[in-house]
């Protein structure tokens, strides 16, 4: 049994970045995050014997993490990508240069992190899994139980929304 515990500690170590990314992007409140992370790993430990080798362990734990967060959000009715987004602004040539200027000011990653929080939780998670964890559409599909095509189209919309938020921030700074 002690061997199991030690091995499980290694499982936590090897997956804590992924779980942290999913929970961190989906759940806003730090106290809620701690509880959810505990639930995820306790659930993982409980269901370890049922784990099938068809999936990678990290993807499987990612799936548990995503579902636990989703259940939590569902209880609070904060769920899927909504239409709660600002009307699109026509991107003119001046605004198109905006992102480049922000990079020049070394502000882009800071602004991005801030603006990412404005996207719906599922979009945030998809962005992070694809662009930070370098996961494929099919791996993200396994974690989120979304078809690959949906993952792809949600990602397109998420990037577009994020870009518009960044450009809006840039324009406000200019005023």
């Amino acid at each position: 049994m002690q061997g199991d515990s030690r091995a499980f500690e290694a499982v936590i170590k090897s997956t804590e970045r992924l779980v942290g990314q999913i929970v961190g992007r989906m759940i806003g409140n730090a106290e809620d995050r701690k509880d959810i992370i505990q639930d995820i790993y306790l659930n993982t430990f409980k269901h370890l014997p049922g784990f099938r080798h068809a999936a990678r362990l990290s993807t499987w734990i990612g799936h548990i993490a995503y579902n636990t967060c989703l259940n939590f959000l569902e209880k609070r009715r904060l769920i899927l990508p909504g239409e709660n987004f600002l009307p699109e602004e026509e991107e003119n040539a001046q605004a198109s240069n905006a992102i480049e200027s922000l990079i020049a000011h070394k502000q882009l990653t800071a602004i991005l992190s801030e603006k990412l929080a404005l996207l719906p939780p599922v979009y945030r998670t998809l962005i992070v899994l694809f662009h930070q964890e370098a996961m494929s559409y099919s791996e993200i599909g396994e974690i989120t139980s979304l078809p690959e095509g949906t993952v792809k189209s949600y990602l397109f919309r998420a990037r577009k929304q994020l870009k518009e938020h960044v450009l809006t921030a840039y324009k406000k700074d200019e005023l």
């Binding site: 970045r17 942290g20 990314q21 929970v23 961190g24 990653t109 991005l112 990412l116």
Partner: peptide, 12 residues
Amino acid sequence: EAMALMPATAVD
């Protein structure tokens, strides 16, 4: 490019 450079959210 910038998205890949954002700091990851870590587990406490």
